[in-house]
Design a protein around this nucleic acid. Structure first.
Lengths: 357, 357
DNA sequence: CTGAAAGCGCTAACAA
DNA sequence: TTGTTAGCGCTTTCAG
């Protein structure tokens, strides 16, 4: 954020159009022998311009390769929006966020807004820096998938008029709109489904519940079991990636009193858990995973699916509602999840099979 | 790009600091009883400032929530770069580009540059629009994964000093740097590997060679076979997605004289082709796929792997070399591919197995 | 160590 | 239908 010390060095400011460098409106104006304001009007399709002048100006614009400088535009024009929104994703490599992003872009494009994206890679410090950059660039609004656990520092931004919507993960003590999936209820759906299949020994494989979504999923898992008068057969929260999930599941399945069903709390674990099941003495152990993925489809794994595109669409529409002037109090939109049976939760085990439609 | 007609309407320009709205340097200056320039110096860590003044200014910056307006900064400052690069990706939902992007961001971050991303979704018109936006925002440089087949329209941008590097797909008649994988040679590696396993009837499954990469892969496939004095057993270029690939592969394998090995030209086809093989009368039919994927890892599919991160890293470094002043003629960097044997190309068929490492 | 004035490229307001 | 003047928020230049 902070740049090199102000060296106060001479810089030889250029006089008149530079020999090399980007042409300005003034360059176009003098080439077409009109005033700068006339060029501005042509650029913005102001209707009352003689065809002669319009033609000359357009020709010069093309010849010189003029493009308006949005820095200057954004500086002078403060009433109309600049036409850009920023999306801070936690991890662009995750197909879930890619889908969300694509839906956001679609809404923004329909409104003639540009979408600019940056990724925090789950690093809170990076997130703060990138949000700062977005703010400095005076984008019209932000959609944030936050990797941070505190959001107090955004309070001043909010007060000063920055519009933002949180998506997928809720804000902590910051009165802003947010769009979330029903994580706890979704995990409950998974449990209910497995109970319906006759399972009573259901184990949880996931990562430690420091992240909001993981915490909610675990909570929903436990609540649904409790409602049926059951305890979790086991809860493993050390499955940070596919390899760890493989180990955790393999260990669970190797015990004399092994669970008959597993619930994995996120899609990165599918491969590891499925493999552990396939390699175990009980290859028909049931499996339900939170969030869909290509791998789950191909392996026939039953999932509790969120709709990432819907999440993005709703977040974007909420943001634009705000940009259109809505000043009502912050809203929290909770989207339902869907249980998608594919076999692994219905007694067929995991296998390479029909890739969903 | 074009906005609403210039309505020339009154707008009630505000006088003095606005009651609501973003604080400016002037607001900070008057609150701290110093000049605007002094605030600027504090913001930029200019060393020769009395501690008293610095403290007062910093306090007001925090209190008012001041953030510099990068529009104004970028407008006035023309010698130093603004500190932002733009990446135009063809499809953010593709994990390949996600990896590339992450590597670019890493290089940029190390240089204190911000990375702004937009996705064309493989739409050339959208690509042109987004490149225009990047240019208007006066970013310091661009990395482009182009979905367009013509690039003449970028010529003026180039002449006017916009730095750009093409990645993954080459520019058409535009003298700019680019970084590509050795697609033809990679496809050749696949063929050579299959020949080495004794296969002589090798079929190609892919999409129509309108895209550069697909064309190159097909060319390399055919060339490697020709070198061994062989013809392709079949060439299917109608596999636009996994479902189409499944159909194509199933049809090939159902013929009396079926191929003993398949080469799939991109990772989106893995699931479909693998399933067709598993369902066929010859479940040990060999398979090599171009580009790695999680699915290929889990299914034990032998692949020809590019390194998307390396692609991104090299592109970013090339761009920064240019930003540092390098004016030598355009470079073309070609990165080698790696054959990764996992079983499907070595006689074990496709199966759910050990997820690579 | 600090400040006043000019101007980046563009648009708003007012004139002609 | 077109032009002139002022000024957005900041940095540069030059002066204290």
């Amino acid at each position: 954020m902070t740049r090199a010390p102000d060296a106060e060095r001479p810089a030889g400011g250029r006089r008149g159009p530079a020999p090399t460098g980007r042409p300005t409106m003034r360059d176009v104006a003098s080439a077409a022998s009109v005033s700068v304001k006339t060029v501005s009007r042509v650029v913005h399709n102001y209707p009352f311009i003689s065809d002669d002048v319009r033609g000359r100006v357009q020709a010069e614009i093309r010849r010189l390769g003029f493009r308006p400088n949005s820095n200057a535009v954004g500086l002078r024009r403060t009433d109309r929006p600049a036409g850009g929104i920023g999306v801070l994703a936690a991890d662009l490599a995750d197909p879930f966020y890619a889908g969300m992003l694509s839906a956001i872009e679609q809404v923004a494009t329909a409104r003639s807004f540009t979408t600019l994206v940056a990724s925090s890679d789950e690093d809170p410090a990076r997130e703060r820096g990138l949000l700062g950059t977005f703010v400095e660039r005076r984008l019209d609004g932000l959609i944030v998938v936050s990797a941070d656990r505190r959001h107090d520092h955004l309070r001043p931004e909010l007060d000063v008029g920055t519009r933002m919507v949180f998506a997928d993960r809720p804000p902590q003590r910051l009165p802003v709109d947010c769009v979330l999936a029903a994580h706890a209820e979704g995990a409950g759906q998974a449990v209910t489904h497995l109970l319906g299949q006759g399972h009573r020994a259901i184990a949880y494989v996931g990562h430690s519940p420091v992240i909001h979504t993981a915490r909610e999923r675990l909570r929903g898992f436990q609540a649904a079991l409790a409602e049926a008068g059951l305890e979790p057969h086991a809860v493993r929260t050390d499955a940070v990636d596919a390899a760890a999930a493989h180990r955790a599941a393999a260990e669970l399945l190797a015990t004399p009193d092994a669970p008959t069903a597993l619930f994995a709390d996120n899609p990165r674990l599918v491969g590891g858990v499925a493999r552990a099941i396939a390699e175990s003495a009980a290859p028909r152990t049931a499996l339900v995973v939170f969030d869909d993925s290509e791998l789950a489809q191909v392996l026939g794994v039953t999932v509790v699916a969120q709709d990432p595109r819907e999440l993005g669409r709703r977040a974007a529409e909420l943001l634009f509602t705000r940009l259109d002037g809505d000043r009502s109090r912050p809203r929290r939109v909770v989207l339902p999840t869907t249980l998608v049976p594919r076999g692994s939760g219905e007694g067929f085990g995991v296998a390479l099979r029909s890739a969903g439609r």
